[in-house]
Each structure stands twice: as structure tokens, then as C-alpha cells.
Write a protein that binds this DNA or RNA. Sequence first.
DNA 1: AGATCGTTCAAGCAAATGCTTGAATACTTG
DNA 2: CAAGTATTCAAGCATTTGCTTGAACGATCT
Lengths: 236, 236
Amino acid sequence: MGDRAAKDALFDALASVAKVLGSGRRAEIVDVLAQGERAVDEIAEEIGQSVANTSQHLQHLLRSGLVLSRRDGTRIYYRLSGPGVAQLWAAVRLVASDHVAKLNELAAAYLGDRSALSTLTRTELRDRMAGGDIVVLDVRPEPEFRSGHIAGAVSVPVKELAERLRELPDGHTVAAYCRGPYCVFADDAVRTLRRHGIPAVRLEDGYPEWEAAGLPVETNVSETPARGAVNLTETA
Amino acid sequence: MGDRAAKDALFDALASVAKVLGSGRRAEIVDVLAQGERAVDEIAEEIGQSVANTSQHLQHLLRSGLVLSRRDGTRIYYRLSGPGVAQLWAAVRLVASDHVAKLNELAAAYLGDRSALSTLTRTELRDRMAGGDIVVLDVRPEPEFRSGHIAGAVSVPVKELAERLRELPDGHTVAAYCRGPYCVFADDAVRTLRRHGIPAVRLEDGYPEWEAAGLPVETNVSETPARGAVNLTETA
DNA sequence: AGATCGTTCAAGCAAATGCTTGAATACTTG
DNA sequence: CAAGTATTCAAGCATTTGCTTGAACGATCT
């Protein structure tokens, strides 16, 4: 014990966790899975990669222990293996935003100019929801809403927002939220709403942070389960 | 804004932080730097690599923003660029210990059998120090002690411990601590002390966790500064 | 100024990585 | 049981990584 080879092997194993997160595509996958479990083809669609490539990344994540999978009927659903993984991803983002030089620039290039969009913190949103004068819109893709959302939120994926504006009640401010600080959905939603004269703000961070903070959430167990018994067998 | 290329670039940048931690040798470096700043040749010695290779890893860490450097006379000292980096490293270790299958096995191979060694938590140690019936030994290499240690601890690097046993006062239990949960120094120290009939326990984690918890520390500013004014110019 | 010490650079090489394409597998459904 | 769908495997490739060796650089000290 205490020899070089064993130490190297141990630290290689510790580092393997970081290594697997050290690919932009896998990071995107983790960002998606932080919203809840998803099937392979959905994930591939989200990250803009081929199904085969996405599957390989998922295998990689699986072998490293960051995700788990289960089969339900014909599809295989992946999920983060625990809350620690989402926390790790948050820690990575925090360090990046503090110390990676070009990050602001890249974020601006992807997110656009956020300066005109006002934001609400989690607690501000909670308080305004208690007041009842605000409509909360979950603008993430529908499966993410289904596997968990802010209690009382309504699902209107940003892609459908423009066509569903008339569903919104008059005379209320709208608060939109999505995956987190590096997600554009809520920004786009707020811009669309404003363009139509509806007062709108964005939740500063996303659903995972809301959930992690212990604020009220709803999970729709009745919608997803699909026909047949849910098979809990791990496919790992 | 919102296009694929920009999103990929953004997530590549976020993932770059994880990527740089995704090498066992760089992880060892971060583990060392979490104790305080060190010069290149010292780090090379600690991680058992050539100076040239260590320097390259440090350049890598520097470019990614995780560490900073400063020159003092003839040597260049590296340090973590902020507390978030140590937190990130802790998050990596936590996920690894929870989810990496073979980790326990590898840890056992490096650390040996810990079952016979009793441990103290941070708060237990703090309370027993208040009682005054315990001697606290910092068994890390001396430079790490010098750049910061538990208030009231005595520096006896584990390499020197066997020859310096007579310095220890009689009739006290000894608590040894080192870098953290994956460090062998305190284990080795406890084993050595026990072998000589001295009651000894190990602090469950290490100095960085003690410091992060806001418990009392001492930093020896007067010893290190070296001749001449400290040059604060970053060499990055 | 020259010698010395600590650090970095440059080139080279074996091994690993990320993606593609096309085939194989495993389950469900008719 | 056969057809269909979702996922994984396998091979191939251009690129990147981690380490080595030997030389170059930069600051200090005589």
C-alpha cells in the first residue's frame, strides 16, 4: 500500500468521473438528463448527434457510473445515477463561469443579448406564485415537463408557444423557465411573449436548481408509465 | 443565437473544465494544490512525474483557468485559482466514491486496510482540542504545513515521524491529519504511532475540508515570503 | 558578464478519442 | 412466428492526448 502504481490507478479512477464529463456532447447529455430520464433517440435529437454516436456516449457514461438505464418496452431510458451527478455538473458550470476566459463570449454568442430580459430568482418566483398574480410557463420539451416540473406550472414547449398564445390568461405576468442558466428556451419564450405585448420574465436558473432547493414540484407518474408493467431491470 | 455550432462551442467550453481534471496526474496536482501553492519541481516530486511533463500539465491547467501562477525569485509557484476549484474536486471525489464501481477496491489497494484505524470528524477534533487533551499532528510535507494548517497543529511530516517520536509529549492522544480522504500520510502516521504504543487517531478528512468549513487555521506568512519583495505579477 | 538553476518549449511516438457508416441484436406488435 | 423499431456493436479514420528526450529560455548569484 502507498505505492506509486496504486496511487496512479486510484487517481485515474477518481479522474475518470471528470474525464467522462469532459466532452461537450456528453456534457449536453448530462444537462438534458438533469431534467429527468429520456430515451436514446430523444437525447440524440436534443444534442444534434446521430443515434449511434449518442448511444456510444451513453455507454461511456454508463460504464463510468454517471448514468443508469432501464428498459421500458421497446425503448431504453437513461437517467442520472444520483443527485450528486447534477451537483457535479453545477460545480463544473460554476468553475467555468468563474475561470474560463472566453466563456462569457461563447455564452453571449449562443444565448444572445440577455440584458433586456428581466429575471426572477427562485425565491422571488415562489413568493409571486403565492400572490397568485403570475402564470408560470415550463417551456422545455414536453417529456421533461412530464418527468417533473415546478408545482403549478403549465407546459408550453417553446416551439409551440407562438401558436398557443391565446391559451394564456389575460392580465397576468408570465414567468418562463427551462433547463438552467445556459438554456435558451426561456429567453426565446420571453422574447416571443414580449413581442406580443405580454409582460414576461425569466426564472434565473432552471428546473434542476428549483428541485434541488427543495421547492415544490410535481411529477406526473400517471402519464408516462406506458402500456404494460414498467420493467425496472437495469440494462447495465 | 441558439444555433447548433454556438451551443456546441459553449458546452465544449463548459466541459473543458471537466476535461482538464480528467487526467489522473492532473487530478493529483489539483489535490496537492488544494493544500496551498507549490513550485513546479515540488509538484513533480509529489506526483512522481518528470519536471517537463509536470510543467506541461500545469500549462494545461493554467490555460483552462483552474490554476494561477506567480514567480518568486527563481521559481514559479502554482495555486488553485479559487475555492470553487477545490469544491469541484471534492464533488468529483464524491461522485466517484458513490458511483464508480471499482473505486473501493482501488482505494483499498492504495490505502491499505483502514478498518483498524479509528477516525475523528472535524467537529469531534475541534471539541477535543478545546478540551486540551490531544496533540494534533500535521503529517503532510512541510511546505503544505507552511502555507496553511489547523490552528495549533504541529508539523511532523510522515517521513520524519519515526525519528521524531521523542518530541511528542507523553500521556496525550495524537490526532494526525493530511490532505484528505484519499491521502495515506495520516494512516501511515497512525500505524507508526500505534506500533510505538502511542494512542493515535486520524482526522476523517483533511486540511482543505477543515479550512472550507471555516474552522480555525493558521497561515505562516512570515516563513515563506523569501528574500526580496514577493512578486505578484501573474506569469500567465 | 558568465555560470547556474528552475522552468518551458519542440519534436516525436504510441495510445486513446470522437465521429461515421453499415451490420447485428433485442424487444414488441401484428 | 415474422416484421418492425430502438438500440448497440464493429470497423475505420482523422485528431488529440500523455509521455519522453533534449534543447532553449529567463532570472538570479557570484
